[in-house]
Design a protein around this nucleic acid. Sequence first.
DNA 1: GTCTATAAATCGATAGAC
DNA 2: GTCTATCGATTTATAGAC
Lengths: 209, 209
Amino acid sequence: MNLIEKKTLSRIQKEKRSTIKKAALEVFSEYGLRGATLDKIAVASGLTKPNILYYYSSKDQIYFDVLSGLLDEWVAPLHNISSDGDPIDELLGYMKAKLKMSKQKPQESKLFATEILHGAPLTQNVLATSLKQTLDEKVAVIDKWIEEKKLEYVNGYHLFFSIWAMTQHYADFDIQVKSILNQSEEELFDDAEEYLTSVLLRTLSVRAP
Amino acid sequence: MNLIEKKTLSRIQKEKRSTIKKAALEVFSEYGLRGATLDKIAVASGLTKPNILYYYSSKDQIYFDVLSGLLDEWVAPLHNISSDGDPIDELLGYMKAKLKMSKQKPQESKLFATEILHGAPLTQNVLATSLKQTLDEKVAVIDKWIEEKKLEYVNGYHLFFSIWAMTQHYADFDIQVKSILNQSEEELFDDAEEYLTSVLLRTLSVRAP
DNA sequence: GTCTATAAATCGATAGAC
DNA sequence: GTCTATCGATTTATAGAC
């Protein structure tokens, strides 16, 4: 897929593409790559189908652009974990940042979930290289903290997996969560943060206050 | 959808339907309802497309039958939580049963994940009634244990959400997990069980041995 | 019951007028 | 740049021979 010319887009082209991407995120996150149709994206964006294909060469191209535009943002909180900080503060901050993203960006979370669930056709390479490398570094930080006796032993990889799983669950499976709990979004995420804070503190061998 | 005549199926009809359902589970779990095609199910089952439609009236009907046939099995471990047992044993047993299902039935896990992720078009009613009712009962059991001082305070609903999230993560996002960890399935799930046991014991205020 | 052939609908993408 | 009209491919589902 040729994205080289993207740098030379005019202002109006950027705006149209942005409109399309916003609508496409809605549709892709709800129906997945294959379930989404250009008709649905057209309706959601207020544009016609040929007009969309004037700005993007294909449906796959739109999906690729939406997904790659969100990848950096999605991995960003991981980079904020500093080896200089207090282990508990750093990991608690990471969990809270991830939970906040689930609350504020559920469509993005669902998009990545569907992508990975269906074999990560477009991001498998990124998972195996960039994400793995970043995670390896952060697990190394955790192992260093353990060695320095700043943290009790914990399996770093599975710690991150469980943080991802528990926080993203509230976005990806919101239908199920909301079917069971008849709460406002605000109450729900407040309770979730309280619970997850407790789980993480105890997992890291700290007694909750 | 009319499933009434299902009770009067002949032996050969049951067998054919079973063959189709097995193939359909493979395809639906990998591509989702909309991404799956009758062609793919035909190839996977070794039958022709019209032959499949001789036993099922439509693709949606196959999906519905596969999903509803697995629903009971999927919720079953929850029923095994006994209020008479030791709280820690019961909840640890439940987590391990769920993790075992993720290891042994990843396709089923992915099928439910995709269904819920995409708005639970066919199961929303079940989630809001049957699953909610069962979970309410089990949360009541946990609250009773807390009242009887057999268990420290914990938010029952979020406890179950986190068990679901952490255990199903290993099936639903196996592509991501395996991209990061270069382990055999056996090692991976052994480590996962050790980690999740530790998390759960600490969450329930018990020091791991 | 099973097949080949094909109808009918949907969907991605293009042609060509404006 | 944007539209209507439509092509061509895919896919669900059916018709009808065997």
